[in-house]
Amino acid sequence: KKPMSASALFVQDHRPQFLIENPKTSLEDATLQIEELWKTLSEEEKLKYEEKATKDLERYNSQMKR
């Protein structure tokens, strides 16, 4: 599977709780709203997800070399 971006990892982490809190929201709308939240994060908060994305890219690259 392809590597995930930092923002995609953020959405993946936050979507389940968002949908619990907003059960009538469609998956598409939830994703859009969480992506807007991503844009408001500080660089420090984004760094955690950027590090995860880097590790996921390394995983992807090692799988492609096999």
Rank of each mutant, 00 (worst) to 15 (best):
T40D: 10
Y49I: 00
A8Y: 01
A30H: 04
L9W: 05
S42F: 00
K48A: 11
K65S: 15
K65F: 06
K52M: 15
T25P: 01
Q33N: 00
T40M: 08
A53V: 06
K65H: 04
E51M: 09
L37A: 12
S26I: 02
L47E: 08
E45M: 07
S7R: 15
E45K: 06
P16I: 06
P3A: 03
L57R: 12
K46M: 02
R59E: 14
S5W: 00
E58D: 12
T40Y: 03
N61P: 07
M4E: 13
L47K: 06
K2P: 07
E44Q: 09
K65A: 14
L27M: 11
L37H: 13
S5C: 04
Y60I: 05
E45D: 09
L41K: 05
S26E: 05
Q63I: 04
K55C: 11
T31M: 02
K46H: 04
T31I: 03
L32M: 14
Y60C: 13
P16E: 11
Q33R: 06
R66P: 15
K48D: 00
Y49W: 13
K39E: 11
Q63Y: 11
M64S: 12
M4N: 08
R66M: 14
Y60L: 07
K55G: 09
Y60H: 12
Q63N: 15
S26N: 08
I20T: 02
A6M: 01
I20F: 01
Y60T: 13
K65G: 02
L41Q: 12
K2L: 11
T40E: 13
D56C: 08
S62I: 06
P16A: 12
K65P: 14
K65C: 07
L41G: 05
W38I: 00
Q12R: 07
D56V: 04
A30R: 01
A53Y: 07
K48S: 09
T31D: 10
L32S: 08
A6Y: 00
A6H: 00
E58I: 08
S7Y: 04
K46F: 00
A30L: 01
E51P: 04
Q33T: 03
N61E: 14
E51C: 07
R66F: 15
F10C: 00
L27P: 14
K52T: 05
P16H: 00
K48H: 03
K65M: 06
A30Q: 03
R15M: 15
L19S: 14
L27A: 09
E44Y: 05
L37M: 05
L9T: 05
R15C: 01
A8S: 07
K52F: 02
R66D: 15
S26M: 02
E35Q: 03
L37R: 11
A53N: 04
M4P: 12
T25S: 03
Q63C: 10
T31A: 08
E51T: 12
S7F: 10
M4L: 13
E43N: 14
M4D: 10
A6V: 02
K52H: 06
K39Y: 10
K2E: 03
K39R: 05
K65N: 08
M64D: 05
S5T: 15
F10Q: 03
A53M: 03
F10K: 04
Q33A: 12
K55W: 08
R66L: 14
K2Q: 02
Y49Q: 02
Q63W: 07
M4C: 01
S5V: 04
E45C: 05
E43Q: 14
E51Y: 02
